[in-house]
Write a protein that binds this DNA or RNA. Structure first.
Lengths: 111, 111
DNA sequence: CATTATATATCGGCTTTCGATATATGTCAA
DNA sequence: TTGACATATATCGAAAGCCGATATATAATG
């Protein structure tokens, strides 16, 4: 990870929900999608993602199903109605949070 | 705390450094300053702040001195040269991080 | 045939933060 | 004046979030 990992804290679930709000994806694909979309800033670790996905299924934010592709079984995940609600809440929280940071830093970020 | 505390993760030290880059302050004052500047979004807890301040002094980011005001002894903190360097780094990381979040979320934040 | 990429998984440990609790003084109203 | 609240600092244990290490298995590449 290029930047301090601790800054990522709390936003991983939001990012996963966002990726899955576009289309169903499997774990490994999410890791790559996040790296690409963030332009190599985020490098979500497998050790973080897989337990998180299980947890999110348990909470009813995601559903999962297996699909065989080229001899390998992939586990696809899709976002639920509840997951979409949580995503909207987390995006709102992110706006509040980053807005407050900007105010404390004095509004001189983004150059 | 109005928003999910975990979103704050990792940025507390940066915010403390920022407050002290303006002027020397004592702990209780920082808690209030952060609440005011963030417009009630951040509510830094004493149980978070005081151990963090001790740690930052130990790392050479801050210096501290006592001052008696109205019969009460306050512990003031000031930022060091090293602390200023760390602040600059953390601000840069924050720009990278929040920029990446915006890219993943699709640029539709801040409305 | 060996190495690398793909793909998922678990476990222990670290870091960050907070709730609870403790202590002590100043201020203000009943 | 006395009880409550604000000011001010401090520590401890617990919880949450994330990651490194590790394991397993198959496909592709050289």
């Amino acid at each position: 990870m290029a930047i301090d990992r601790s800054l990522i804290s709390g936003s991983t679930m939001m990012l996963v929900l966002k990726l899955l709000s576009e289309k169903d994806r499997y774990g490994y694909e999410m890791i790559e999608a996040l790296r690409e979309k963030s332009e190599n800033v985020f490098e979500l670790k497998a050790g973080t993602l897989y337990p998180l996905l299980h947890d999110m299924v348990g909470k009813g934010y995601l559903t999962s199903y297996e699909q065989e592709v080229a001899g390998k079984v992939r586990k696809y995940y899709g976002i639920t109605k509840t997951g979409k609600k949580i995503l909207a809440e987390k995006e709102k929280e992110w706006r509040e949070y980053s807005g407050a940071i900007v105010r404390v830093l004095g509004g001189m970020i983004y150059e």
